[in-house]
């Protein structure tokens, strides 16, 4: 996911009950924190755990990045996106609106 492109969506819809959780898979803390600050990202940013506790590959079986799941209010994963091309944020916005 092009994370900076999620920031405007987050700001626009958060008051209607939209959240973004981004998980950095490789635990590159220094680069991640720098990236977050440079891009003014204010949504939930988490770091993958280490070894046996890691969840990205083991639970979510994510091998290609970026990957994202759009989850409805009941916790059901309703949309999946592999990669994030220019213009994908429009599709994403439509999908978010169907679930809000």
């Amino acid at each position: 996911m092009e994370l900076p492109r999620l920031q405007p969506l987050y700001e626009q819809y958060k008051d209607q009950g939209f959240e973004v959780i981004a998980i950095e898979a490789k635990r590159d803390t220094e680069r991640a924190t720098k990236f977050i600050e440079e891009n003014g990202l204010t949504y939930t940013m988490l770091e993958n755990a280490e070894d046996d506790a890691e969840i990205v590959g083991s639970i979510f079986k994510v091998r290609s990045f970026p990957s994202s799941f759009l989850i409805d209010r009941d916790g059901k994963v309703m949309y999946f996106h592999l990669g994030f091309e220019a213009g994908d944020e429009e599709h994403l916005e439509e999908e978010i609106k169907t679930l809000l």
């Binding site: 996911m1 939209f18 959780i21 981004a22 998980i23 950095e24 590159d28 994510v62 809000l100």
Partner: peptide, 19 residues
């Protein structure tokens, strides 16, 4: 941060990335 705490009742985009 617990995922359930953040997302309950909300529409949530869960995005996996690396810098």
């Amino acid at each position: 941060i617990s995922m359930a705490n953040v997302r309950t009742g909300k529409v949530t985009l869960l995005a996996f990335w690396f810098p």
